[in-house]
Design a protein around this nucleic acid. Structure first.
Lengths: 279, 279
DNA sequence: AAATGTTACGGTTTACGTAATTATC
DNA sequence: GATAATTACGTAAACCGTAACATTT
């Protein structure tokens, strides 16, 4: 049977033009190449070269063989790549979320129960999440409302309440609670990549200019050093150290509260049971 | 590097479902297959199977691997076939002719000078011959007229003269020569596959009914046993044994004589020199 | 003299099959 | 007890690199 190694030799030979150069490039000795090419000709039952005493050159058939060999070698390299990709996808647990807090929570849970598995997490728009769940790009998606149908099941696992974080000398700093509307129009600091909260802010506070920060530590520095109002949440306050020069005031609107649900395909229920049980 | 043998093992395993059956089919021992599959997994850096103590079954990745492997194996089998075909075509000498006599003559010459090469001969319509020569389906074509242009050269190498072959008691049997027109209207015996002569007969003797014979020996039997007129030629008379109960009479028309030319592409002149020189 | 390809030879590696082992039906 | 897969082990085949050789530039 022909072997891929021989085809690789053939292609390298063609690229290098002489057996000796090809041998160097392949890190083998010339005699090996001589024999390899002889064997290939035997197995293919065709002459691939014009040989003189100390010269060996490709004939037409040989050149055709090179082009066919290249294709086969490419295919096998592709094969490996495809399999590795497929396998990774198979063993990767992908979580898509509409917000950062529940994703952070679920990630931690996940790594407790499946420490060896690869985890992929994303914050995306909700319509993308739903599409991705159906197409099995996500094993689980995190949504701020529930659902129940033939394919999809959802279970609630976490709540999050937003607060305003105001500097001590802010005019509203003394209040017990503040509505979104009351704050609308002020400049505010905001983290980027906060999922559906972003949409909520834009809708409920259309006159506010949000100063978006990508970097979390820069965001915290700005919160501490500037006098700009910002948002925080009960989850963030539990998990992060909060600055001292701020007043935390509840937001009165219902939109500032979310219940997060795990959505998953019923067909995957068995493999998810452990995780779901411990949420 | 992955080897094709491993891929073949993989595919056979999938077809047989167990390693032992696959081993039998491949005429090797189980341990070889066990190791072969282990090595394949190592090289691909993926698990292809679900193993229990005495069971090994394909997982999803394994099944994908099988389908990819099949494609590669098919490609390599194709590769061999393509190369053999290409090589044969490269080494095949193809002669197309407008008539049987010069083809028979040239074939004999050819096998004298290139006894080891494969020869392919065909009698075809002249427009097909010219097309085939240009497209290199034919190395040489035999035509009843000459040509001379940039690509094609022609050299005359043989003449053929047709005769009527009449039974002894035929009304015209006594004549020194006969024209085609004189015989037009009579039933005649004719060999099939006689190339351009066929067109000539149809044109010059539109009222004659030709009784076409495929088999040469049947044709000769009929010539000998029937009283139907037929054609023969100087070439045929030289190479075949002629029946005794016939009169051979020259045909007076110019169309009954042909000079045959070898046409070939100038670019092939060097490889044809030996043959052309000895025509 | 330098470079190229092929053949010869010796030693190591590889790879095979048999046999033994473990597990399942 | 029969079948299946894996592991262990000794032997035979394969393969590689060095060296020697033959040609060519």
């Amino acid at each position: 049977m022909i072997e891929l190694e021989q085809l690789q030799h053939l292609v390298t030979f063609q690229e290098c033009q002489t057996l000796s150069k090809a041998a160097k490039q392949l890190h083998i000795s010339q005699p090996v190449l001589t024999r390899s090419m002889q064997k290939l000709e035997e197995e293919l039952e065709v002459n691939l070269f014009n040989r003189t005493k100390n010269k060996i050159a490709f004939n037409e058939t040989g050149l055709l063989a090179v082009s066919l060999a290249k294709r086969i070698l490419d295919d096998t390299k592709d094969m490996k790549k495809q399999l590795v990709d497929f396998d990774r996808k198979l063993h990767t647990f992908a979580i898509g979320s509409c917000a950062p807090a529940p994703l952070s929570y679920l990630s931690r849970k996940f790594s407790q129960f499946y420490p060896q598995r690869t985890l992929l997490t994303e914050i995306k728009d909700m319509y993308i999440l739903i599409k991705g769940l159906k197409e099995k790009d996500y094993t689980i998606i995190i949504m701020p409302y529930d659902i129940e149908n033939e394919q999809i099941e959802s279970i609630p696992f976490m709540e999050e309440q937003l607060f305003f974080s105001l500097p001590l000398n802010h005019p509203l700093a003394h209040k017990k609670s503040i509505s979104l509307k009351e704050m609308d129009g002020e400049k505010m600091l905001l983290m980027s990549n906060i999922g559906f909260w972003n949409d909520m802010h834009k809708k409920t506070m259309p006159h506010t200019k949000f100063l978006i920060q990508n970097d979390r530590s820069v965001f915290y520095d700005l919160v501490e050093l500037s006098t700009l109002p910002s948002f925080t949440s009960d989850y963030v306050m539990k998990t992060e150290i909060m600055p001292q020069n701020r007043v935390i005031i509840p937001i009165s609107d219902a939109q500032s509260h979310a219940t997060f649900y795990c959505w998953y395909l019923r067909e995957n229920e068995s493999q998810l049971r452990t995780l779901l049980y411990h949420l």
